[in-house]
Design a protein around this nucleic acid. Structure first.
Lengths: 188, 188
DNA sequence: GAGATTGCGGAACGATGTTCCGTATCCGAT
DNA sequence: ATCGGATACGGAACATCGTTCCGCAATCTC
């Protein structure tokens, strides 16, 4: 008796505002970091702060939501890259994309270690989504003989993440240490 | 011509207040974490916030100052422990002390990664002071045959630090993982 | 189209870092 | 011992946050 009696549809403008907020948050986070004021995000979306807090119980949950959608998008990119490029190249392109994700999330690791319960589910989501993605890429590249075998996918991902922490890198390219790592990964 | 003409002495109450503030900050940080409000620290010291900001340009600098003094104290403890205990025991006691230092500084790593310039000098101070301390302890214990040789001092310190991050541990004892590490270190 | 409900905007609140300035305190010379 | 000026203090005031609240507007159901 709690959920099956379909009380009413979600209002169209509400649904629209939620999407707008997520997009705006992503934009603002990229511009000013995850510590950007809630007001800025609301303004970017063209709504009031009240609307923001109607859709998310607090700022941290909004941050978590944005990260989740970006993780999903990054994971999804793996399959399409594999279809359009040779395995080794696909791996490089995907890692570059992942690097960009980490780099633009200045404050992600700090947020994760903050102890805020809103972020509790993020690490699990992280490995659950990104783990299969990197694994498929790495397996394909290894099978094609373009990459040394025996590399643990999640370990590689973690390492790239750690290396990408510090590195503004104005253009989208991964930082030198990541490049080094990738060069070491490839067979020549 | 910049410093040698001794214009006047530092006022005694000012000097006293600075010490009081450092002690108060240490107390409050231990009780409420490094994110404790500046007002709380001033109150604990029995001074106004204005006084706090006269002695430190901002909150971050106060945090850095406290860490610095605690790092110094921890480093200094190494020599006295070595004089009063057998080398292996001294090592354990010191690591326990270090563990307590890290554990009570909930938020230290987050602060370091925050990018605040006030914390730039801390890592260097960290290794400069703590490096020799752990080295002397480890060397003494190894020379006495109480500990396996060939362990890199700073690496050990870093590992203990990483393991101590998460672990409130109400009593002062180090967390189980640190214990495990130490047990592995000792020769039986 | 009317009524009910859902959702919106933004003022308001409480907490926090930081600044400011009138006032109290201390130091050195007399 | 005292006096004058430099020095430091206290805490109100300001700016900026996250979050809440509520009168009003947009939307949906019938």
């Amino acid at each position: 008796m709690t959920s099956s009696d379909a009380p009413r549809k979600v209002r169209a403008d509400a649904r629209q505002n939620l999407d707008t907020l997520l997009v705006a948050a992503r934009t603002v986070f990229a511009r000013s970091g995850v510590d950007a004021p809630a007001r800025d995000i609301a303004a970017e979306a063209g709504v009031g702060v009240g609307t923001l807090y109607r859709h998310f119980p607090n700022r941290a949950e909004l941050v978590a939501a944005v990260f989740t959608t970006e993780i999903d998008a990054t994971a999804a990119a793996a399959t399409s890259l594999l279809e359009e490029h040779p395995p080794g190249e696909a791996l490089d392109l995907w890692i570059t994309r992942f690097t960009r994700f980490v780099a633009t999330k200045q404050g992600l690791s700090a947020a994760l270690r903050s102890g805020d319960p809103a972020f509790d589910a993020l690490p699990a989501h992280f490995t659950a989504k990104l783990g299969p993605a990197i694994t498929s890429l790495l397996d394909a590249a290894a099978a094609a003989g373009e990459v040394r075998p025996g590399v643990d996918p999640l370990e590689l991902l973690q390492a790239v993440g750690d290396l990408s922490h510090r590195a503004p890198s104005p253009d989208g390219s991964p930082n030198p240490m990541v490049r080094l790592l990738l060069d070491g990964l490839h067979v020549r």
